[in-house]
Design a binder for these strands. Structure first.
Ligand SMILES: [Mn+2]
Ligand SMILES: [Mn+2]
Ligand SMILES: [Mn+2]
Ligand SMILES: [Mn+2]
Lengths: 253, 253
DNA sequence: GAAATTTATTAGACTGATCTAAAAATGAGG
DNA sequence: CCTCATTTTTAGATCAGTCTAATAAATTTC
């Protein structure tokens, strides 16, 4: 063997989307099973089985029948490349063309396959090499290097002070809602209480005065960073005086 | 019949390109024959025969076997829409992302199918509703209205003073060459002589001091406007104290 | 640990876009 | 009007991506 290795293998936009989904699933520390991939792409399971076999043959991922897929080095490289394009495009649409954060995803989902490398490098420079997209997600750099994301899922957070790090949901309705109640990346908020039995969280975004009650499910797509807790205050507060958190310079809006 | 009429018919990018080519051929006052369409798209004739039948069935063009195609109202509407997108995108790439005029076509050829109407209207506004693309071609307006283009093919022009109106050629090499010798939209030049027997034309672009000898064939893609002939003046030096050159800010490398 | 449920694969088909090779129509010239 | 070169269509295939229905493997439940 050892016959592959011609760089520049060019793949269809369909393949790019499959790879991106597998990456996303792996990032969530889940198994990229046939049905999971199928759900993300909204295609039939049988279609995925087929495609995974093809992608394995193309050397882009490992595939064990009845188990699922794992990206190879090359497959991951391609997936990260598309992820970078996607997020850079979202930032471009938001910053340069004035798209709302709930509008960017859909457009980027198509453009990521259509623009050239030149286009990407031009918008990268135009945006001054941003490190995050409008949802607060990290943009891999040109060499495919990805920032570590050490944030906390709001659904698992304890009452306290936080700031919104990212929102991993692309449903326009949902995003428009968050925007309305004043929850977007960099917003500071305090989690005031969590109702028991999968109940909603009571949040106070720094912007709006009104508290917001958000269902637990919805909170799963919001990620936050703990903040050096509010003024002296009372007991509780399981914090550490903020140690980590290097990299990730914010620049957005 | 009378069963069509559901607006919003969405077509593939392949279909969009077919329609655009038929429009282009019709604009050149030629018959959109199978083989001519095939040549423009670089596909086999048989492929075109097939597609033209499909497009006829879809109501986008008339198709007479052994004769060729003619756009219907609806087909023309779609074709003009893509043409608008293409040219607006070229202008955007040139003005906003600093692409050279020889680089824009290829990228626009893909993007024209991938961007949304929102994207188009945003770049249109950003560019302040331009009426021409970087090659000097008219950009149809949002309602599909197309400016009449009353220009003259340089290949058919008599010696005299002209200004370059548009260049209808998308070969990057060729465009880069024209750029180098100082021939681009809005450039003033004098056609000094035409060699007989399909010989080259001797041109003096206002910018460069050197005369340029351009083959007749090449001149077929350059269109000019006659200018109120050079000042009284003597024989040579058809200059003007540097006035021209509005639009098209150059920035490339 | 067998049955029931869930998940995955196989089989068979379809659509859109393309090709090559062969057959047929067109049109120019004699 | 007949012949031949050119253009076009027809026939038959392929490839990517998708589907549904049937079958089979894996996992969960009792
Ligand atoms: Mn997105
Ligand atoms: Mn996509
Ligand atoms: Mn063009
Ligand atoms: Mn195109």
């Amino acid at each position: 063997m050892a016959a592959e290795s011609q760089r520049k293998a060019t793949v269809s936009s369909t393949v790019e989307d499959y790879l991106k989904v597998v990456l996303k699933i792996e990032d969530m520390k889940q198994r990229a099973s046939t049905s999971r991939v199928a759900r993300h792409l909204e295609v039939a399971d049988a279609t995925v089985t087929d495609m995974l076999r093809k992608l394995k043959k193309a050397g882009l991922l490992e595939y064990k029948p009845y188990y699922g897929a794992t990206l190879t080095r090359e497959g991951r490289r391609m997936a990260v490349r598309i992820l970078r394009r996607h997020r850079l495009l979202e930032m471009f649409l938001h910053q340069v063309l004035g798209y709302g954060w709930e509008q960017v995803h859909q457009e980027a989902e198509r453009l990521e396959h259509a623009v050239s490398d030149l286009f990407i490098s031009r918008i990268d420079a135009l945006l001054d090499f941003p490190s995050q997209d409008p949802h607060g997600e990290a943009i891999p750099d040109a060499r495919g290097f990805r920032q570590v994301e050490d944030d906390l899922c709001l659904a698992e957070a304890e009452p306290g002070s936080y700031s919104v790090r990212k929102v991993t949901n692309s449903d326009p309705e949902f995003l428009a809602y968050l925007d309305r109640v004043g929850l977007r990346p960099a917003t500071r908020l305090s989690l005031q209480e969590k109702a028991p039995f999968q109940g909603p969280l009571k949040l106070l975004p720094e912007s709006g005065r009104e508290p917001v009650y958000l269902g637990l499910e919805a909170c799963r797509s919001i990620f936050v960073l703990p903040r050096k807790d509010r003024p002296p205050a009372s007991a509780s507060a399981p914090d550490g005086p903020a140690s980590r958190e290097a990299g990730t310079r914010g620049s957005r809006k």
